[in-house]
Computed example of a mutant assay.
Amino acid sequence: MSQGAERSKKLRIVLLESPLELVPPEIRRHPQVKRYTERFGIEPGETLLDKTYHYYAMEPLPEKWKRGRPDIVHFSILLLQDSLLNQKGFLETYIHVYDGRVFYIKPETRLPKHYDRFKGLMAQLLIYERLPPSGDTVLVEKVADSLEEFVEQMGGLILLWEKGKPRTAKTIVREAMELKWPIGVGMFPRGDFRAETIRLARKRYSLRGVSGSLKAWSVLHYLLCSAEQLLGILP
């Protein structure tokens, strides 16, 4: 399949229920949070929730098992943005964060490989809804206030879900590119999607031949490779 004939086709990926959020107000006075913010000289309300540093502070939070894991999103974004598919102009990456907002990462954006720098930028993004916070150049920006609004903009959503109908990665990617719908991949470490997320998905698939759950970045790897093969980028 030639690139010229398929130039209009793109793989759209949305990182669903990403555990990116500022430290919630109800735990900002917790000693663990205070020690962390004093160490780095930042305010609790400008700090990204991170289970590594806020484990005990997170104890009273609802859905605590799905929160405080920016590292999953960090690794996933690096994989997507550095991919050959993105470099060739065939990828669109979106982040759906914990409070429901959706952000678009432009193809030329290269987020820091250093984890602490990444967290600092994500905190800025959640506060200002764009990166950088000011100026004419925008590398990451908000495109929707909710997942429902985003799905309406896109026309539909294909959800990768363990309970979905089994399909090969290549079949899922081909259908997504033809429909121009994003494929949603969960970013949380364990548990299930929210009922609202499942409801909004027009199609729900699982990866055929895969038993049990895969890490988010492994799923993304399969999708990227399948798209690169379908578009003739890889043999």
Rank of each mutant, 00 (worst) to 15 (best):
K88M: 13
E108W: 13
E152K: 15
N86V: 12
F150M: 07
T93L: 12
A169P: 01
S206A: 13
Y128T: 03
G191R: 07
F103V: 04
V102K: 03
Y128M: 02
K106I: 05
V140C: 02
L159P: 04
I198A: 13
Y205W: 14
V102L: 05
R167W: 09
F188V: 13
R199W: 09
E178I: 08
E175L: 15
G184P: 05
I183T: 06
G135M: 08
M154L: 04
K142T: 04
L147S: 12
L179F: 14
Q87K: 11
L200K: 09
L139S: 08
L111H: 03
M122G: 00
L121N: 02
E108C: 07
D136L: 15
Y98Q: 14
L131F: 00
R167M: 12
F193V: 01
T168G: 14
Q124A: 10
E152S: 09
G120Q: 13
L157H: 08
E129A: 03
S83N: 04
T197W: 05
A169H: 03
E149M: 08
I95C: 03
E108F: 13
Q153W: 09
R110P: 00
I127H: 11
L125S: 04
L157K: 10
F90Q: 03
K165N: 08
R199L: 11
E108H: 13
F103C: 00
D99F: 09
V97H: 04
T171W: 00
L126E: 07
E129V: 02
D192Y: 10
R167N: 07
G191N: 07
E175G: 01
L85N: 05
